[in-house]
Each structure stands twice: as C-alpha cells, then as structure tokens.
Simulated scan of single mutants.
Amino acid sequence: MRTFLLLSSLVLSTGAAHAVDEAAAIELAKNNGCLSCHSAKEKIVGPAYSDVADKYRNDKDAVANLVQAIQYGSKGKWGRIPMPAHPNMSAADIKTLAQWVMTAQH
C-alpha cells in the first residue's frame, strides 16, 4: 500500500530510539485485521495512524498506552465505534505495531 511508504523506521519512546521493522509491522497489521479499520493517512472506521501519532506525539507513555489499546481494545477515544481487543496477539507483536503506529509521518 503506497501510503505506508510514508512511514519511517524509527520511533521515540521514553526518550530512546527503537528500530521498527516496517515490513514486519505492515504484515502484522494486514494479518490481524488492522487495515480493515485503519490506514496511514485517512480515517476509515478508526483513526488514521498519522492522527494517532499526532495525538500522542508528546506523550512519553504513548507506546505503552497503544499497547494497552491494541491488546484490550478501547472505546470513546476516537468516537462511538470501539476498537476490539486483540488478546491472541503476542506482546512482542503488539509492541511492534504500537511503535510502528507512532512512526506515522505528516
């Protein structure tokens, strides 16, 4: 998907840079249904990844908060439609996705 080329390969989390394997993160997003509701730059059902990154850009706990939202789901943060939980994803995969989301370029 062309819009994902806009994503960089680094994320800042608690002051340290973490490399994100973009290709692996995109595959995780595809395989876990994330791209059914989200895209890099445009709202589908859920917010665009760039909007999520904007909202949490200065939050030192952004990755940890996104991990929680991905694993347990969330509601009310972005409108009426809740984000479903992903309890069967590994903690490592969830963290990879959360870090990747925070790399969205503007």
Rank of each mutant, 00 (worst) to 15 (best):
M1R: 11
R2A: 15
R2W: 10
F4R: 00
L5K: 13
L6S: 02
L7N: 08
L7F: 08
S8P: 02
S9Y: 00
L10P: 01
L10N: 02
V11H: 00
V11C: 10
L12K: 11
S13Q: 13
S13E: 15
S13D: 15
T14D: 14
G15Q: 11
A16V: 11
A17G: 10
H18I: 13
H18G: 01
H18Y: 14
H18N: 10
A19M: 06
A19L: 11
V20W: 08
V20P: 01
D21M: 10
A23L: 03
A23F: 04
A24K: 15
I26K: 12
E27C: 07
A29H: 04
K30N: 07
N31R: 12
N32E: 14
C34R: 03
L35W: 01
L35N: 08
S36P: 00
H38L: 13
S39M: 10
S39V: 12
K41M: 15
K43W: 15
K43G: 01
K43T: 14
I44N: 08
V45I: 15
V45E: 09
G46H: 07
P47V: 14
P47N: 05
A48D: 02
Y49E: 00
Y49R: 00
S50A: 13
S50N: 10
S50W: 11
V52G: 02
D54E: 14
D54K: 13
D54N: 09
K55H: 07
Y56N: 07
Y56M: 11
Y56G: 12
R57N: 03
R57L: 08
N58V: 10
D59V: 14
K60R: 15
D61K: 11
A62H: 10
L66R: 09
V67E: 11
V67N: 00
I70P: 03
I70S: 02
I70V: 15
Q71H: 12
Q71W: 00
Y72Q: 13
Y72G: 03
G73S: 08
G73T: 12
K75P: 00
K75L: 03
G76P: 09
K77V: 15
G79A: 07
G79M: 12
R80N: 05
R80F: 05
I81E: 08
M83Q: 12
M83N: 03
M83R: 04
P84H: 05
H86Q: 11
H86W: 08
H86E: 05
P87S: 06
N88T: 06
M89D: 04
M89N: 06
M89E: 03
S90C: 07
S90Y: 06
A91C: 01
A92W: 00
D93Q: 05
I94T: 14
T96M: 02
A98I: 02
W100S: 00
V101M: 04
V101F: 00
M102D: 03
M102V: 13
M102P: 07
M102S: 07
T103V: 08
Q105A: 13
Q105F: 04
H106T: 07
H106L: 06
